[in-house]
Amino acid sequence: MTHSVENAMAMMTRTTRWSHWETLFWLASLALLPLFPNKALLFSQIAIMGLFALSLDLILGYAGIVSLGHAAFFGVGAYVAGLMAKHGWGDPTLGLLAAASGAALIGFVTSFLLLRGSDLTRLMVTLGIALMLFEAANRFASITGGADGLQGMMVKPVLGLFSFDLFGKTAYLYSLTILFLLLILARRIVYSPFGLSLRAVKANSLRAGAIGISSATRLVAIYTISAAYAGVAGALSAQTTQLVSLDVLDFHRSADVMLVLVIGGVGWLYGGIIGAIIFSLMQDWLAGITPQYWEFWIGLVLVVLVLVGHGRLQSYARMLIHAITHKGRVAHPDQRGTS
């Protein structure tokens, strides 16, 4: 009996363990800096976009909440960090904490609007909230700088030690570190009983309620956490570019992050990061070839991805990664299915 319980525990926690490819992934992301030193600014933008998409994955992938207004939280975080840096509170860590709190507060308050209603309702409500924040930032130009952007940010060195350089080296290492730490935290959250209950609510909220799970409190909690994550991404963007404009709240940002997440795959945490890499590199590369029409190709990729089916492409990629990390021993498809 005890043996079977131990066995069951091992099976339950098996898929949550840190895997080889993850170590490889993070080492590779560190190695990028010495390999392509003049691309550090691009890499830091990718890390920030990855974090932003990760925040969307927390609600979309794990709780099934669709949002077309996630830029609201990115923007709030960016303005909080930007305004702090402008008014003499330029310590980056402090800025991140304040941005996370500010975005979390807005997320918490607005989450109650998402508890009822269909996906369409949620799309419209999130879109509406982002539009309202955009216009509010536009209206209060005396505080936000409006369309001209926030002027005069003074961001201090990270931890008082590493000042931001022109090449984006500090920016990248800083953004990457925050992304890494928040990914670790996100892993803990989604693999926990709380995370499992989110999946249950997503799969069948009727039954979740019937076994005593309060869907509402779970959704409020994860939406608030997701907003905080997006706020941190916004703050990183503000601090590393020393620039905040209305663009941080713009609709295209909400649409882009959805695109990024769909490209990388919803519901496995790394989807946002992988999507950000593919999206940014494609954007960078295509913009070089066809500066005016790169969005055409992004659009084409999106259509193909959705039609071919993401799961299939993703499992090919996983088989490939698995084959590389396990020297050619390709996992049987059925084994992956039970994870």
Binding site: F194, S197, A200, I213
Partner: peptide, 23 residues
């Protein structure tokens, strides 16, 4: 196992634990 784990954790008041791995 996960499904029942959810129901049982919830009954014990541990259903919202976020700092430990389920199982």
């Amino acid at each position: 196992l996960q499904s029942l784990g959810l129901a049982i954790s919830e009954r014990h008041g541990h259903g919202s634990d976020w700092w430990r791995v389920a199982g």
